[in-house]
Simulated scan of single mutants.
Amino acid sequence: MSSTPATPAPRPRPGGRTARIRDQVLEAVRAELTEHGYDALTVDTVAARAGVHRTTVYRRWHDVGGLITDVFAAASDMEWHPRDTGSLRGDLAALNQEIQDSLLEEPSFAAALIAISFRSEAAAHALRRLWEDRYTQCEIVIQRAIERGELTPPVDARALLVAATSPIYHQLVLLRTPPDPQLPDYAAAGAALAAQSGAFTDSTDAPNTSVGNP
């Protein structure tokens, strides 16, 4: 990874009535997914829920795959930045808490997106793109730690972020065990200690995976 988060090329944003229709349709997709799941998602149900004509949806999104892809694109476009708590452990814990909260929402849109990625090739591709965007945005957490003197560069930011956040997904998505309120901080503390001991030093100096390269 580069030493500063890459700025993705801005996606064209429709305005006026087009933007309103997009918002209505995508909100309908989110509601249908969280309430009824992927199997019940159709262009017709989305159009009815959004209050727009089905031909409008077909003309712009073509099919369910197009709707799913645009939902992920809209999620990527959302303004979001990792919290700055003043420490690596605190930043990672805050990130973990956001993840845990999103997975525990009722209904959870985040959980629905993960679930449909196993059912739809379009969703799987879009989810991977979303993850890549989020990992890039989270590089600032590692950069701040380097600037504070908590970490010595170069650091494999992706490996560190995966190590810090994966216990949350493992418990809530894979094991489906009751949430542990201490886990976000516990997982963050373990990853931070490992990073400070040099566990995530990037010896390859690869520019697309490390932070803090000369």
Score class of each variant (00 low, 15 high):
R11K: 11
A195L: 05
G65Q: 03
H62A: 13
I99F: 14
D39T: 11
D202E: 11
L88R: 02
Y135D: 05
P12H: 12
A110P: 02
V46G: 04
E105F: 09
D156V: 05
E121Y: 10
T152M: 12
D185I: 00
F118M: 09
D77E: 15
S120I: 05
M78P: 00
A94T: 10
A194I: 02
E132T: 12
L161W: 05
R22N: 08
V162W: 09
L160E: 10
L33E: 06
E150K: 05
L130H: 14
L95D: 13
R59S: 04
D70F: 03
G198H: 05
I114G: 08
S203C: 04
A122H: 13
A112H: 13
P178A: 12
D84P: 00
T45R: 15
D91C: 03
E147C: 07
A94H: 07
A115N: 10
W131D: 06
T165G: 09
L151H: 01
D63P: 00
P207L: 08
E79F: 05
A187C: 04
A19V: 00
A164G: 07
P184K: 03
G90Q: 05
A9H: 09
R13K: 09
A122Q: 11
V57S: 00
T201R: 10
L161Y: 10
V173H: 11
M1K: 11
L33P: 08
Q182S: 15
T56K: 01
L151D: 02
R20L: 15
T165H: 06
D23V: 07
T7Y: 14
V162M: 11
G86P: 02
G212N: 09
G86M: 09
A163H: 03
V57A: 01
G190M: 07
A195V: 05
R158F: 09
A75D: 14
I21F: 00
F72G: 03
A73K: 03
L151S: 03
A124Y: 13
R13D: 01
T152D: 13
T204N: 13
A126Q: 03
S108E: 11
I114Q: 07
E139Y: 14
E121N: 08
S203N: 06
T204Q: 12
L160K: 01
Q171G: 04
V162S: 10
A111Y: 04
W61R: 01
P181H: 11
D77C: 06
F200V: 07
H81Y: 14
A74G: 07
T165R: 04
A122D: 15
T18K: 09
W80K: 04
A199I: 05
F200Y: 13
G16Q: 00
S76L: 08
D156T: 06
S87M: 07
D91L: 02
P207G: 06
G66I: 02
Q196I: 04
A164Y: 02
A50D: 01
V46C: 05
L161A: 12
S117T: 09
A93H: 02
L88F: 01
H125Q: 10
P179L: 05
A122G: 10
A164T: 01
Y169L: 11
A187I: 01
R13P: 00
R30A: 15
P153F: 05
A206V: 07
D39H: 14
L103M: 15
R30K: 14
R89G: 02
S197K: 14
S203R: 12
A199E: 07
S108C: 10
V162K: 04
Q97M: 14
R129E: 12
G198Q: 04
